[in-house]
């Protein structure tokens, strides 16, 4: 995936065919972060914090539902991926790129949770089983696409 064109509010990336396939496959997995994963506070226990926790869970659930619809719409939108001789041109506005970053990071973090939330720098082992192994690939691919998008936002060519 490579940034080939950028103007004020639109970016165009070149995707090889297998990259487009991979991107669409991992996007279909959204959402991956479990609903009860996020906590408003580690220590505060007041009624107000409990209400805030409920509000957070409701907001995140609504956001996930909306994002899921948008992800499926994006994958199936013909103008989004324009076929070329060597692959596809993937068109995004800056706000869509920002949204896609959130979606990809949910997929990355959710994959990491599925792998046992390991801290490999501290020597913790990745939970690799027949069921979890695909998440290692998903996590790495989501990270790869995030990096390309972030570089594009920061004005670096891919």
């Amino acid at each position: 995936m490579k940034l080939i064109q950028a103007d004020k509010d639109r970016l165009v990336f070149h995707l090889e065919r297998r990259e487009k396939r991979s991107l669409c496959e991992i996007l279909k997995l959204y959402p991956l972060v479990p609903e009860a994963y996020q906590q408003v506070s580690k220590t505060a226990q007041s009624d107000a914090i409990k209400a805030s926790q409920q509000l957070l869970e409701e907001a995140l659930a609504a956001q996930r539902q909306e994002n899921k619809k948008q992800v499926l719409a994006m994958i199936n939108e013909p103008e989004r991926f324009q076929e070329t001789e060597s692959g596809f041109h993937f068109n995004l506005s800056v706000s869509q790129l920002e949204w896609l970053l959130q979606v990809l990071n949910d997929i990355r973090v959710g994959s990491w949770i599925a792998l046992g939330s390991p801290d490999t720098e501290k020597g913790e082992k990745i939970l690799l089983t027949e069921q979890t192994a695909p998440y290692l690939w998903v996590m790495e691919m989501a990270g790869y696409f995030e990096t390309v998008l972030l570089d594009a936002l920061n004005g670096k060519q891919g």
């Binding site: 506070s41 220590t43 505060a44 957070l56 907001a59 995140l60 959130q102």
Partner: peptide, 23 residues
């Protein structure tokens, strides 16, 4: 304030960052 802190925590968690508000 609690309300503003809640707003920021919600925003950060939308991006799947590990963020909380503490007294």
């Amino acid at each position: 304030s609690m309300e503003r802190a809640e707003h920021y925590v919600h925003q950060l968690q939308r991006y799947s960052l590990h963020a909380t508000m503490e007294r």
